[in-house]
């Protein structure tokens, strides 16, 4: 963990993420603009929450930040690189190396064991599973509290455990930023708290940046920074006590 910390600090000079005037539209004939001129900067090591009503564009924005989709206009720089200039293969590579993902559904690949799921981001970048990946994956599973389930299958785990595996997987490549779209959306309050605490802990210990989409004001209140999106515009951005 401390190694990742150093690496993250070593490049602290450059901005993690910068958005200028980013818009996103959908449709060919009937064009609907979902995001209107988003300006946003994320620094390394931030623990930020993204809130907003349903349909306000949170997932759309997260997909742009995650390089899963391209902006219609404006510039988006990840680690100083203008992603509009990168082709799909380069985006895939950058995504694999610099970003971690946690989603509400489709957590894990059922055909892979728990530890293989955690190793998957390293395997994707490396082009195959290697034995040397395993100790790190096991350490991450240990860190999220399910070290003894490394060789289980995802279907044998509860929802909360599966989400812990997803957290471990998101951290496998030591990404400077993890994007989480309602990671606790379908967990009960207690489990949801535990998973959120994990994210907080990784943020504090290894300086990994997190951007967490949530509907839960309580969770948002425990982040360093809260971004509020309404109708495709960022209407508030600041510490929780100011925004909420």
């Amino acid at each position: 963990m401390s190694e990742a910390n150093e690496a993250n600090e070593a490049r602290a000079g450059e901005r993690l993420l910068e958005l200028e005037g980013v818009t996103k539209s959908f449709g060919d004939e009937v064009v609907v603009e979902v995001l209107h001129g988003i300006d946003l900067t994320l620094e390394r090591g931030e623990l930020a929450a993204l809130i907003g009503p349903s349909g306000s564009g949170k997932s759309t924005l997260l997909n742009l930040l995650g390089l899963l989709d391209r902006a219609t206009a404006g510039t988006l720089r990840l680690l100083g690189r203008d992603v509009a200039t990168l082709d799909d293969a380069a985006l895939t590579a950058l995504r694999g190396e610099s970003l971690g993902f946690i989603f509400q559904f489709h957590h894990l690949i059922p055909a892979l064991s728990v530890v293989e799921n955690v190793m998957m981001p390293a395997a994707a970048v490396n082009g195959g599973f290697t034995a040397s990946m395993r100790p790190k994956a096991e350490a991450l599973l240990e860190a999220v509290g399910i070290g003894e389930r490394a060789d289980s299958w995802p279907r044998e785990l509860s929802g909360g455990m599966q989400q812990r595996v997803a957290v471990a997987r998101a951290l496998m490549n030591d990404p400077p930023l993890v994007l989480a779209d309602e990671p606790t959306g379908n967990l009960d309050t207690e489990t949801s708290d535990q998973v959120f605490e994990l994210l907080q802990r990784f943020n504090a210990e290894s300086g990994t940046g997190f951007l967490i989409v949530t509907h839960d004001p309580d969770l948002a209140g425990r982040c360093d920074r809260v971004l509020q999106l309404v109708d495709g515009r960022l209407v508030a951005d600041g510490p929780p006590d100011e925004v909420l």
Partner: peptide, 10 residues
Amino acid sequence: GILRAIGTKQ
């Protein structure tokens, strides 16, 4: 989708 998101090449 997940595989692609976590860096699996097309």
